[in-house]
Simulated scan of single mutants.
Amino acid sequence: MPSEEILRHINELLDQNQKEKAVKFIFEMIVKSANAKQFNRAEKLREKLIEVDSMALNEIINSAEIIEAEKSKVIDLDHKKRWAALYDQLTNEEANAFYFALKKVRIMPDKKVIQQGKLNNKLFFIDQGILKIIYSKDGHELFLKNIAKGEISGRRTFFSITVATASVITTEQVKLHFLEREKYSRLVENFAGFDGKLELFCKKLVNQDIEDILKKKQIERRDHIRYEASGKVAIYMLDVKGKPAKTPFYGILENVSEGGLSFSLTGLNSETARSYLGRSVLLKMISNKTELKVVEKGITLSVYNELFNNYSISIKFLKPVPLIKIQEFIDAD
Rank of each mutant, 00 (worst) to 15 (best):
M1F: 06
P2A: 04
E4Q: 01
N11H: 10
E12L: 03
D15W: 01
Q16S: 07
N17C: 07
N17D: 15
Q18C: 00
Q18P: 05
E20G: 00
E20A: 07
K24D: 12
F25H: 10
F25A: 05
I30V: 13
K37W: 00
N40V: 02
R41G: 06
K44Y: 00
R46A: 06
K48P: 01
L57S: 08
L57P: 01
N58Q: 09
S63M: 00
A64Q: 14
A64P: 02
I66T: 07
E70I: 00
K71Q: 14
S72F: 07
H79F: 15
H79E: 07
K81L: 05
L86H: 05
L90Q: 13
E94I: 00
A95R: 03
F98T: 07
Y99I: 00
K103P: 04
K103C: 04
K103G: 06
R106Y: 03
K111M: 11
V113P: 04
I114Q: 04
G117Y: 07
G117K: 01
I126L: 12
I126N: 02
Q128F: 13
G129L: 01
I133W: 04
I134D: 08
I134S: 07
K137G: 05
E141H: 08
L142T: 15
L144S: 13
K145N: 12
G154L: 07
R156Q: 12
T157R: 03
F158E: 06
A164V: 09
A166C: 10
T170G: 09
V174E: 11
R181A: 12
E182H: 11
K183E: 15
K183M: 10
S185A: 09
E189Y: 11
E189G: 10
F191K: 11
A192H: 12
G193S: 12
G193K: 10
F194L: 11
F194H: 13
D195T: 01
L198D: 15
L198T: 12
L200T: 15
V206F: 07
D209M: 00
I210V: 14
D212H: 11
K215L: 13
I219Q: 15
E220F: 06
R221P: 08
D223H: 13
I225G: 02
I225D: 14
Y227T: 10
A229M: 05
G231E: 03
K232L: 03
Y236M: 01
M237E: 09
L238V: 04
D239H: 08
K241Q: 08
K241S: 14
K246Q: 11
L253W: 05
L253A: 09
N255T: 06
S257R: 02
E258I: 03
G259Y: 11
G267Q: 02
G278P: 10
M285F: 11
S287K: 03
N288V: 08
N288S: 11
T290Q: 03
E296R: 11
G298M: 03
V303C: 14
Y311M: 04
I313E: 09
I313R: 14
F317C: 05
P322L: 00
K325Q: 11
Q327S: 09
